[in-house]
Design a binder for these strands. Sequence first.
DNA 1: CCCTGATTCGC
DNA 2: GCGAATCAGG
Length: 241
Amino acid sequence: MSWTDERIATLKKMWEGGATASQIADELGGVSRNAVIGKAHRLGLKARPSPVKAAEKKAAVAKKPKPAPKPAPKKPQVRADAPPTEPAPAPSTAPPPAAPAADRKPEPQAEPATASSNQAQPLPNRAPDLPKIVSVGPGGFLRQGPGDQQPPIPPAPPRRLVPAKPSPEIADKTSLLDLSEKVCRWPMGHPGEPDFHFCGTAVNPGFPYCVEHCGRAYQAQLPRGSRRPPPPLPFGGPRVR
DNA sequence: CCCTGATTCGC
DNA sequence: GCGAATCAGG
């Protein structure tokens, strides 16, 4: 398998959607988990919670519980001879940014959910919060995650629970679950049919069938030449429709 | 053991 | 560029 544009697109979508490399590999097919990871990194879309990185991050957090004002170590390609575009930070008179992200909107979560407006790119610019966990189904569509679901507040129906009956057709028939060592297991009809059931009458002691069906299940071997055509077996011949 | 992602390195 | 092998944590 080669990395066609479609496959790369699926890889990107699923990777950014939070699917694991195994899920992506298995969705794409023909590639291994390692191949997906390697391709993802080659595409430049790394940075996902990995066990190793998580541990490192955790260690760093534990090591620095205090919000130390860390000067940005990244110098985005500033030429050494270029004049500094950013003036030096003001002296201590300036108020330090001590409250990070304190003025965030509560995000009212007012998604209209008209059920007709979900397209293939349903994810708007999401706040850089925790990585969204998205399950990706066949074809690469993003399934709704547990966090997306607004719990619809089950209306707690004050109804009386009634044991469901399988169907009126089979109501008093002997179903598979009704079988025991005491009832005849002779099948009536064909499996899969709505009214398929078992004989269910009292068993011929020591046999799995009632007396009548024992007579069909066990037949004396007659001498050659005098055999009758056997009666139809329970699962015997072709379906009669 | 299983899982995960990251990295390396021969092809 | 590719991906198996390997590493390392959960």
